[in-house]
């Protein structure tokens, strides 16, 4: 129990301190673009009504979820294939590195051309950024599976499917999860960016519109909400990570 309380204090400690600092530092502010934190917090409840949650926040998160899930599925599937088939790896590696180097915001006008301006475009933008870390990390993970483990699988004639599911995938999973974590951070950013072009609703869209119409406290409240959303997603991810990779984390602590 004490351990949990201590942990909670550690986790919430720094943010609370920063929040308090911000509060007092901005208390008497008359600057238009840096209003007092108290005003932003007051604005928070007024701005983020149930209707806004339904019409802006939830659709954004849903699009992020769809794009992220698609990236995970495609990234792992393609990564497994490319990682296991040697000539495929050598053939695609330069193309993949090229594609991953192009920043997605630059691609948005191009994506708009063939994906239109609706939800499809936004999900496509998210995928265009999230796919690469997952794909490339999966390839790296697959290629770094211990050859002795693969020999064992071959010697016992486990078969391609079982080798893939029981050995390659779990063996590569630490790297895959790393890729998925990177992709999550990228996904949140792209969720906002995709809504800066040709959008009609969304969290990022709302923040940008607040800025455009000089509703600055509301804009800040949106930014705060976005930050909290990112933190919440990271926390959820950490739980999933611990569940899936508990053997990995325990092995590393117990071996060392």
């Amino acid at each position: 129990m004490i351990v949990l309380v201590r942990k909670a204090l550690l986790v919430l400690g720094l943010p609370s301190v920063l929040f308090a600092l911000w509060w007092f530092a901005s208390a008497g502010s008359t600057s238009f673009y840096f209003p007092p934190l108290s005003e932003i917090v007051a604005e928070f409840g007024e701005t983020w009504t149930a209707e806004r949650w339904r019409e802006d926040v939830l659709p954004s998160v849903a699009r992020l979820g769809a794009g992220y899930a698609a990236s995970c599925a495609a990234g792992v599937a393609l990564g497994l294939l490319i990682g296991r088939v040697r000539w495929l790896f050598h053939a695609t590696e330069p193309v993949l590195e090229f594609a991953r180097a192009v920043p997605p915001p630059v691609l948005v006008p191009v994506i708009m051309l063939f994906a239109g301006i609706g939800d499809g475009m936004k999900v496509a933008v998210i995928i265009s950024g999230c796919l690469w870390p997952i794909l490339l990390n999966t390839v790296a993970g697959v290629r770094s599976v211990d050859p002795v483990q693969l020999d064992t699988a071959a010697a016992y004639r486990l078969g391609r499917f079982r080798t893939l599911t029981a050995i390659v995938l779990p063996g590569a999973s630490p790297r895959i999860v790393t890729g998925m974590r990177q992709a999550l951070a990228i996904g949140v950013i792209l969720m906002v960016i995709s809504e800066m072009f040709a959008a009609q609703s969304g969290l990022g869209f709302a923040i940008v519109q607040f800025q455009r119409s000089y509703a600055i406290p509301a804009m800040w409240s949106g930014i705060l909400l976005l930050g909290c959303l990112g933190a919440a997603l990271a926390a959820v991810f950490a739980c999933v990570d611990r569940a899936v990779l508990h053997w990995y984390h325990r092995q590393r602590t117990e071996e060392a």
Binding site: K7, V11, A231, A235, A238
Partner: peptide, 15 residues
């Protein structure tokens, strides 16, 4: 996990 939360809060502020 605590690292990630602190990191995310800092990032939010930085943004």
């Amino acid at each position: 996990m605590r690292r990630q939360l602190a990191h995310a809060s800092m990032s939010a502020l930085a943004i």
